[in-house]
Amino acid sequence: MEQREYLKEMTVLLAEDDMIVRDSTAQALEIFVRRVIAVEDGIAALHQFYSGIADIVILDIKMPGKSGLEVAQEIRQSDDVTPIFIVSSFNDCDQLHRAIPLLLIDYLIKPLNFAQLKMALIKSVDYLDKRGGLTYPLGEGIHYNKRSGSLITTAGQEIMLSMREKQLLDLLITNRNRLVTKERLEDLVFNMECSETSLKNLVYRLKKKIPANRIVNVRDLGYMLAEKN
């Protein structure tokens, strides 16, 4: 699959506090990707990231609440695969030195232009490809393709997940080895209050499709995706 085809299935998380810049940048990104989630500060960016929807993250270096560097640092504590870009001006060079350990793909210098954004997206696909980020290994020869929402076996069999199974697995992968509460799962997957039975049934159906013991039930609290031993 070519880079453009991958991009058509991806979601970009864009954090920028300037409304005019945010809207114009989002419109340019939407030419290439399936969806753009645009937020105005760092706290909202982290909330959206942990909902499991972002394939690529673009952060303004200076934002209310948390700066782009602080958001990137928090993401990197649990995720070293998702492509992250910092948007800055030339006079932010001193701050950018702090970003060296954060495995950023690149810095985008303001004012942003169409060519910059296009190259950033292409770099993201290449980066994901090299780091195995276009699919996620679940063990026992099964890989998850987040872009298509399907499970791929070593025999080449493709098993499509339902929309809610995909949302659940995306959320658990983003928060792997961390508890995701039942209340958060209900809010993000069902977008409403649901019965405990509905959530249990959804988890049960997903467990039947992926290797045993990857989804751990933390009694009365929620679920987590355990890393492979």
Rank of each mutant, 00 (worst) to 15 (best):
K66C: 04
E193Q: 13
R22E: 10
V125M: 05
L128C: 10
E74Y: 06
C93F: 14
V81S: 09
D55N: 15
I210T: 06
E5L: 10
L151W: 00
L138D: 07
S51K: 15
E183G: 09
I56Y: 00
V33K: 08
I109T: 14
A72I: 01
I105Y: 05
D79V: 05
V189K: 03
K146T: 05
E2F: 06
T25I: 00
Q73D: 11
I173S: 04
L112K: 10
M63L: 08
Y136I: 14
I142W: 05
I58P: 09
E2P: 10
V33D: 06
H97K: 14
D170G: 01
V81M: 12
K228E: 15
F49E: 00
M10I: 07
D79C: 08
G132M: 05
I37M: 11
D41C: 11
S195T: 15
N91P: 06
S162K: 09
Q116H: 15
I215C: 11
L185C: 15
K8H: 06
M192S: 15
L14W: 03
M160G: 08
P111V: 04
E158Q: 12
K146E: 06
L206N: 03
A99W: 01
G141Y: 00
E2K: 12
Y144R: 04
Q3E: 14
E2Q: 11
F90L: 14
N229H: 11
V180H: 00
K66W: 00
E227G: 11
Q157G: 03
A26H: 03
M119H: 13
A120Q: 04
Y50E: 05
I142R: 04
E193C: 08
L202H: 04
L188R: 13
G65V: 00
R176I: 07
D170V: 01
N177C: 13
R76S: 09
V21W: 07
A45V: 08
S124Q: 06
I61T: 08
T82I: 13
G156S: 03
M1D: 08
E2R: 11
D80C: 10
D106P: 07
